[in-house]
Nucleic acid binder design. Structure first.
Length: 404
DNA sequence: CGAGATTCATGTGAAGTATACCTTTAGGCTTAA
DNA sequence: AAGCCTAAAGGTATACTTCACATGAATCTCGTA
């Protein structure tokens, strides 16, 4: 029976023409030949960074704009060009790009500096040496020859939210301790109000030049999608209206091009898997669901056990109370029983409070600290994920935690 | 009736602890002269 | 005596705990109209 079920499946699979020509063109780290609608920013950044080719220290730059407005793409493009020229002319220019959001890579001061050192090819142990020492090592490596270092810190707002702006202060002042080398900072932030939380000294030195990226509007998104789609898909693989719908979705959601591209890619994958010859509008809707689902599930899966247990407790309380908003005390009570069941050592309420705050940062839940007068003070927790998905996450956590 | 005191349930900061990991150092063993 | 390996010692970052105090509006208390 099995043979029959599979009869010719793989043959057909090979014969069937793929909808994609080059799927890479839709992936987030793909650098297209041309960057549409970002000419002003490109020239602006280029002109600020250009002095580096004469070994003059360029101004620090602060770049801000919502997600998917092409910040990373643009800076990467300028950097690549800069590096190309620099290496042709033998100019000692060193560029480092670090994404501060990546957990376990750069979510503390120590780890960030260690990561910087690693970029220069020297290993730093995960523990054992003082943070100050790591700074020293970093200085030494940079300062051992005349060179210019451009340090790009992506998602810098995450960093500051977690560990404060002291590290930025140190980095902006690094030049006064260097004799040969020079360091320029490029900070990239998603949040427009990010600088308000900064120490004024950091703010002024980081923001010597500020560049903002406005969200793409629907028409610009369409241009971008068309260009990428032409590269990624076989001609005629996309039904008319699909691009428009994709861009409309994304434009609605603060002009996020990354999201629009992802939407198109996932829609394409779904279409292909279902055996359809074209990508239709229905696939877009399907993709919309899938993306959100995958994002949340990925994040949840990556969490440590204790975090999962807390999240599970939150979901349980939400499900049983039939209420949108719940508070910390309820969660902690359930959490303790969850720990009993799974044999996990329960954390203190103090710690759980921090864990919940971290989930807030991750965008899995919304929290708000409120005072309920006579009835104390608590953190109101509400879920962001749609109810259907929360059930699914709950099941996932159940199996992950060996519940029942 | 209204101003101020009280109260609750938890937020939050600081300091201390446990753990895992790193480097250095001391001691013991082997090896070569 | 020199070289090498191993174990102990001493140091660090991080995750977590403990302790103590802060919060802030609903509710209570009590003086006053």
């Amino acid at each position: 029976m099995v043979q029959q079920a599979l009869d010719g499946f793989f043959e057909k699979y090979i014969e069937k023409k793929s909808l994609f020509l080059n799927k890479k063109a839709l992936q987030s780290f793909y650098s297209p030949q041309t960057i549409l609608h970002r000419e002003p920013q490109i020239t602006q950044i280029a002109s600020i960074l250009a002095p580096s080719l004469k070994l003059e220290k360029p101004s620090n730059i602060f770049i801000y704009g919502k997600t998917g407005t092409g910040k990373t793409l643009t800076i990467r493009y300028v950097i690549n060009e800069l590096m190309r020229v620099a290496s042709e002319q033998n100019i000692p220019l060193h560029l480092i790009y670090i994404n501060c959001k990546l957990k376990k890579v750069s979510d503390t001061e120590y780890r960030l500096i260690a990561q910087l050192v690693k970029e220069f090819g020297e290993a730093i142990p995960s523990t054992g040496i003082p943070t100050q020492e790591v700074y020293q090592i970093f200085f030494r490596i940079i300062d051992n020859k005349t060179q210019l270092v451009i340090l790009i810190l992506d998602e810098i707002d995450c960093l500051v939210e977690k560990i404060g702006d002291e590290i930025l202060y140190n980095l902006t002042r690094i030049n006064s301790d260097l004799t040969q080398a020079r360091v320029s900072l490029v900070g990239i932030s998603n949040s427009l109000f990010f600088t308000n939380y900064l120490d004024p000294r950091v703010k002024s030195s980081l923001g010597e030049e500020e560049i903002s990226f406005a969200p793409y509007n629907a028409l610009q998104l369409q241009d971008i999608l068309r260009e990428r789609a032409a590269e990624a898909f076989r001609p005629g693989a996309i039904e008319p209206g699909v691009i428009e719908k994709c861009s409309a979705y994304a434009a609605h959601d603060h002009g996020d091009a990354r999201r629009a591209l992802e939407l198109l890619r996932v829609a394409g994958e779904l279409a292909e898997r279902s055996g359809s010859l074209v990508v239709s509008i229905a696939h877009i809707d399907e993709a919309e669901d899938k993306i959100e689902r995958d994002r949340v599930i990925d994040v949840v899966k990556m969490q440590p056990k204790q975090f999962q247990a807390v999240l599970y407790s939150i979901l349980s309380v939400c499900a049983s109370k039939k209420r949108e908003i719940i508070c910390t005390g309820e969660v902690y009570d359930i959490y303790k029983t969850v720990c009993m069941k799974t044999g996990l050592r329960p954390l203190t309420q103090r710690r759980v409070s921090d864990v919940i705050a971290e989930f807030d940062l991750l965008g899995i839940i919304n929290t708000k600290v409120i005072s309920k007068g006579r009835y104390g003070r608590t953190r109101e927790i509400s879920l962001i994920v749609p109810p259907g998905l929360s059930g699914k996450i709950k099941n996932l956590l159940e199996s992950g935690l060996d519940l029942q």
